[in-house]
Computed example of a mutant assay.
Amino acid sequence: MSTGPRSTSTAASTSEPQADTRLYPPRPILAASVAVFRDDGRVLVAARTKPPGPDVFSLPGGVVEIGETLEQAALRELDEEVGVRARILGFAGHVEVIERDEAGAVRRHFVVNAFSGTWLEGEPTTGPEASEVRFVALDELAGLKTTPGLAGIVARAHAVWRERRP
């Protein structure tokens, strides 16, 4: 993983502290998330507090840690970010988030693997990574500011949930 920004136009001194080591990564960063559904078919979404996509709704999730499976990462992030526990039902797809700077260099590149899950316990709470959390009906997603690709991932996750829920 990169220890700081790289740029084709200006290089930062290696002695300067960097605020975000996920900027200008040498390779895509692997992440995982989970679309958690309750019995009524509502899905859990959270408004992010950090880039990429601050103040937009997405699925709870984050970076996969070394030695962790994608499913383990998705469930850990769900619990850490919003205090909810779920059971994974299946894979829903992936979304690539690629952000470029003004010079065209890749500033951020995440590959987010999304799962479908069913709620087990815990009421969603806000925290350092989620400024707002709520369960919403699928038709309410269109009225929210969301991360790119969220509607498609949630639709696929919902299909998995309908097929495999207990």
Rank of each mutant, 00 (worst) to 15 (best):
A47R: 08
T49Q: 11
S58E: 11
E121N: 15
R87T: 13
R76Y: 11
L120S: 05
N113H: 15
E99M: 07
V112L: 11
G61N: 04
L78K: 15
L70A: 03
F37M: 02
P28H: 03
V64G: 01
I66R: 13
P128C: 02
T146Q: 10
G93H: 01
I88H: 03
A73I: 12
E65Q: 15
T3P: 13
A32C: 06
G4M: 07
V95P: 00
A32V: 04
E65Y: 07
Q18V: 13
L120R: 09
T8D: 03
G122R: 09
E81R: 13
T126G: 12
R164E: 11
E99G: 03
V160I: 14
L44S: 02
R27H: 05
E68G: 08
A159M: 08
R85Q: 15
R85L: 11
E80Y: 11
V97N: 13
E163W: 13
V97P: 00
E129K: 10
P166H: 03
V64C: 07
Y24D: 04
D101R: 04
A11T: 10
G90E: 05
L23R: 11
E121S: 15
T146D: 11
L23Q: 13
V95S: 06
T147H: 07
E129D: 08
V112I: 11
T21L: 08
S131P: 04
S13T: 06
F57S: 00
R165A: 15
T3C: 11
T10K: 13
V112W: 08
E96P: 01
L30V: 10
R27L: 07
R48T: 03
R164I: 09
V63Q: 11
D139N: 14
I29A: 02
L141P: 00
T14D: 06
P28A: 06
A103E: 10
R6H: 12
Q18M: 12
E77N: 14
A103H: 07
P54G: 02
H94K: 15
P148V: 04
V64M: 06
R38H: 12
L144C: 00
L150D: 04
K50P: 00
L89R: 10
R87V: 14
S33F: 03
E129T: 14
A31N: 09
G117N: 02
G122F: 06
D79N: 13
E77W: 14
L120G: 01
L141S: 01
L59A: 12
S7L: 14
E80V: 10
T14G: 09
A105S: 12
V34H: 11
D40E: 12
W161V: 02
D101Q: 05
L30D: 10
R134N: 00
A151P: 01
V133M: 02
I66V: 15
L150V: 04
R6P: 03
A31P: 02
A103G: 07
S13W: 13
Y24L: 00
L30R: 10
A130R: 12
P60A: 14
T8N: 09
Q72W: 08
E65G: 15
A130P: 01
E102L: 12
R162M: 13
H158N: 14
F135V: 03
E16P: 00
E123G: 13
D101Y: 05
L59Q: 07
F91Q: 01
F135P: 02
P148K: 04
T147R: 14
L75V: 12
W119R: 05
E71S: 11
R164Y: 10
T69A: 06
T125G: 15
S58Y: 14
E80W: 09
R87L: 09
I153R: 02
D40Q: 08
A32D: 01
S33W: 02
